[in-house]
């Protein structure tokens, strides 16, 4: 992707409250570049509740509504239906939720909205734990990862919830995974989501330097290595079509390289890393990727 072609207009204001190197801020910035000004953001409790700025300021140049943790998809349904009734059906109503608000507490509302084929875009920026409250485990936390509620590592018997397939099973208009470390893929998917009609879901991996225990400079790199190692697979599914892998590295790097970049995995011994590698391999095999 030639970044010189990316439009210069910003829909985010400077001075947001994201930590240095935050993947969530960066992802929002670019998502909005694709979605444009006819976009309304509905935001449940998440890091973004803070990032968006303190009253009476705001970091967004599009309408934004903060909502309680569990309610994003339902509120967005209400907003979209209101806009439909107003005769302005071309407005993108976007839920912008973290992994806690999606995988855990918001899952029911999400499932409801997906099943009702609500005409909204649900974006989950997944930083793999409750970061805003100080790094507690969520059902998006990968096995082995340190959090403050898994001080010796997230139990290995746990598996990161397969959000893509959970949503895909509702047969939505569009479902995809993405990360801003792969800009062309990211832009294309938001473009597709924007142009589709019905329920659309994009699960984006979003690095959290404090939570992942990485240097803020390595934020984009970490997201990239997640994909290059096969820990996070970039794929999509359009309604009526099979799942499509949208990016396949020439050769997957060992998960070690991804894990050991991050402090949250640095306590893992060789065997545990091998175990994680085996699981990743199995998953990649299931996806016909290995």
């Amino acid at each position: 992707m030639d970044f010189r072609d990316v439009k210069n207009i910003e829909y985010m204001n400077q001075g947001d409250y994201a930590c240095p190197g935050c993947g969530a801020g960066l992802s929002m910035r670019h998502a909005l570049k694709v979605l444009g000004e006819k976009t309304i953001i509905v935001m449940p409790a998440s890091c973004w509740s803070i990032i968006a700025g303190v009253f009476p300021t705001t970091a967004l140049q599009v309408p934004l509504m903060h909502v309680p943790f569990a309610t994003a998809a339902a509120v967005a349904s209400g907003v979209k239906n209101a806009y439909k009734k107003k005769g302005q059906d071309d407005v993108n109503v976007v839920c912008w939720a973290g992994d806690g608000g999606t995988f855990d507490i918001g899952l029911q509302a999400l499932s409801g909205a997906a099943e009702r084929k609500e005409d909204i875009i649900y974006v989950c920026y997944d930083n793999e734990a409750y970061m805003n409250t100080g790094i507690q485990r969520s059902s998006a936390t990968p096995p082995g990862a340190w959090t403050t509620t898994t001080p010796t590592g997230n139990p290995l018997i746990y598996e990161k919830k397969d959000m893509f397939n959970i949503v895909a099973s509702h047969n939505p208009a569009y479902v995809a995974t993405a990360t801003i470390a792969y800009p062309d893929d990211f832009y294309l998917k938001f473009e597709k989501a924007k142009n589709a009609k019905g329920f659309r879901f994009i699960h984006i991996l979003s690095a959290c330097p404090p939570g992942w225990r990485i240097d803020s400079k390595d934020s984009v790199k970490a997201m990239r290595l997640a994909v290059e190692s096969g820990m996070f697979v970039l794929m999509e599914k359009e309604q009526g079509k099979p799942i499509r892998i949208t990016y396949k590295p020439e050769r997957f790097i060992p998960v070690r390289e991804y894990l050991l970049l991050q402090g949250r995995y640095r306590h893992l011994d060789k065997n545990t890393i091998n175990e994680i590698q085996i699981r990743v391999n199995e998953r990649l095999k299931d996806l016909d990727l290995s």
């Binding site: 400077q14 700025g53 705001t58 970091a59 140049q61």
Partner: peptide, 10 residues
């Protein structure tokens, strides 16, 4: 919120 976060010199 009607003003921008640009008062927050990060």
């Amino acid at each position: 919120s009607i003003t921008t976060t640009e008062i927050n010199l990060t």
